[in-house]
Amino acid sequence: MLLIHCPYCAMERPEIEFRHAGEAHVARAPDPSQLDDETWAEFLYFRSNPKGVHAERWRHVHGCGRFFNALRDTVSDRLLVTYKAGEVRPELPPQEHSR
């Protein structure tokens, strides 16, 4: 069970308080009707699914209820950093990249 730092509550809580919400920074287009089928499918279904640092969303569903973002290493499952929704993806120190 992971231990996740909620950036809104500013505390680390066990994974079962949270709900995973998929890849982060997959923004919905302001006007989807302008998109062709391929681009829309890309938004709906296609994901980066990296082996390594993954930007993902969590919701503190059994806490403050807020959605936030996290960078997690999908090889070790280690959570590297969490940040609030709307914030840009933080740069990691170089050693985190090389992991």
């Binding site: 969303r57 919701r59 929704a85």
Partner: peptide, 13 residues
């Protein structure tokens, strides 16, 4: 409710 919160918080804050 989760879906509504998702859109409200992250797409249309």
């Amino acid at each position: 409710l989760n879906m509504m919160e998702d859109y409200l918080q992250t797409e249309w804050p």
